[in-house]
């Protein structure tokens, strides 16, 4: 309990909690009026955004020593995986929406 109080009393932690809460509310609100036809493209677009994890993989490679092949290898794998998610995710969403537009007109 005491550590919880210290945690909350730290300004940077409090700021982090504010950020979390507002981002959650924003995430809920921003897509709340989506029509059914857009469910799959929106899921696909959100999936591409979840590729932000690639930023961490880039940091891992940058911070590793030039001879630390274990970390470099893991970082390489991470960047490849993240990049497939990002590039493929946005490309596939674009293809879906392209089809959607043609269907409509």
């Amino acid at each position: 309990m005491e550590s919880l109080i210290t945690f909350f009393n730290e300004d940077s932690n409090l700021l982090l909690i504010y950020l979390l809460l507002f981002t959650i509310i924003l995430g809920f609100e921003v897509i709340s009026k989506v029509p059914t036809v857009l469910h799959t493209p929106l899921m696909s677009g959100a999936n591409a955004i979840s590729g932000v994890v690639i930023i961490g993989a880039i940091f891992l490679i940058r911070q590793s020593g030039p001879e630390d092949y274990l970390m470099l290898g893991l970082g390489f794998l991470g960047v490849v995986l993240g990049m497939v998610n990002v590039a493929g995710g946005f490309a596939v969403t674009d293809r879906m929406l392209e089809m959607f537009k043609k269907k409509k007109r």
């Binding site: 979390l20 995430g27 921003v30 932000v52 961490g56």
Partner: peptide, 17 residues
């Protein structure tokens, strides 16, 4: 913070979706 915001945004909107 950027990863945090991006990830939570997807987490929240994905749940609602």
């Amino acid at each position: 913070q950027f990863m945090l915001v991006g990830g939570i945004l997807v987490g929240a909107s994905g749940t609602i979706l």
